[in-house]
Design a binder for these strands. Structure first.
Lengths: 213, 213
DNA sequence: ACGATGTCGTCAACACTGTTGACAACGGCG
DNA sequence: CGCCGTTGTCAACAGTGTTGACGACATCGT
């Protein structure tokens, strides 16, 4: 049992790996210690508590969102791509959605995301106030899509499609007298991937936010 | 120490009260038992586990969403009002957002919400497939707005506005060279109430979802 | 070169969580 | 009356995040 030496980066690495493999809820300090090959409490030499560790994890995940974005003067593909990436990052860590509201020790990567979105909306012709509103709107949609899809995200493609099918059949089996539209729409519910549905919703939201004069 | 007799309804009542007073995270079975004046484990005679109790809580909260909705042939005010109510219900129990994805023992009140939204979208002239997409879009936005606002919701009005102000000053204090738009928009960020911002976003989303031919 | 200093992994323990099984008091039924 | 199922009580278990004392190690100043 060699005395492995840790670092913040190494801890964040295996934390993300564990979350990817077993889900965020299954992340435990003891399990983390075992995966690191050290005593669980060794992590506390590098992070004050679990919350700070998770903040570092979110910072790592959010850091990849804004890099290498398409840089043309077309605002819309850039916004869509940024939101897709943000959604994927949020999906990796469901609690991250609520952790966004932790008050003014904000993460640098969050500032980068905010700046990028505001810049694109201004480039689209919105004044600064409308850009701020658009920013809030887009973030809310993205967070919501990630939150709803979070539970399904840990399943395999096969399981997920099975789940969607089961879902649809539940809708289809409702009493047509009480839920006529739901029964009629059952085949169309949860169609395609969750990301497809999100991109569609985002497109309609952008249509409404940036009127094509 | 009189042997108080419980019921599912009474347990759900005080559970909601505790969540309202101390937040959902602070809800513990021992605390619940104390508030009920019984042994904590007595709750397990009425609910299999904490998850089932929370499902009953969400069913109770979601049940109020669809009742007494404005019933004219104008679809838009009805959709907005329903989403506002849904958002408020979700705010009361943050975990409820993710709990929505718990698979086919769905709650009756969820079906009622789905049916109502689909009906209104069909009344707005959408075909059934577009109505399903609109349903998903609107739900995602509502859940996201609730999730983001959840942390602030437990604070008093005074605390909340202080928090918003602090937030804005953090944005304003950023390096203008690196984050020009954010600094410029700082005064416009988090303006008004969170519900105002949500209603605005929902309006723009509906504009995009239901084109005015 | 060597002792001091501070970093960092280890171990035991604490307070807390949800949950279970044995026990007993109670009320309704034959 | 006597039985029995319902339901509150109690002790206990496994698991969680976290803390403080301990000790090995590397680094640094003289």
């Amino acid at each position: 049992m060699s005395r492995a030496t840790l670092s913040r980066d190494a801890i964040v690495d295996t934390t993300i790996r564990l979350i990817r493999e077993h889900g965020a809820d299954a992340l435990t300090m003891r399990g983390l210690g075992q995966a690191l090959g050290t005593d669980p409490t060794a992590v506390y030499r590098h992070f004050r508590d679990k919350a700070e560790l998770l903040r570092a994890v979110s910072e790592r995940l959010l850091g990849t969102v804004t890099i290498g974005l398409p840089d043309g003067h077309e605002w819309r593909p850039a916004v869509v791509e940024l939101c897709r990436r943000l959604r994927r990052a949020l999906l990796e860590q469901p609690r991250l959605a609520t952790a966004l509201q932790f008050g003014p020790p904000l993460q640098p990567s969050e500032f980068a995301i905010t700046e990028e979105l505001l810049r694109r909306f201004c480039a689209a012709g919105l004044d600064i106030g409308a850009a701020a509103l658009a920013y809030h709107s887009v973030i809310e949609l993205t967070v919501g899509s990630a939150a709803i899809d979070a539970a399904m995200h840990s399943m395999s493609d096969r399981e997920r499609s099975q789940q969607y099918t089961r879902w649809r059949s539940v809708y289809a089996a409702l009493d047509p007298a009480e839920y006529p539209e739901t029964v009629a729409a059952s085949a169309a519910m949860y169609r395609g991937t969750a990301e497809d549905r999100f991109v569609h919703a985002l497109g309609r939201l952008l249509d409404g936010l940036v009127p094509t004069r």
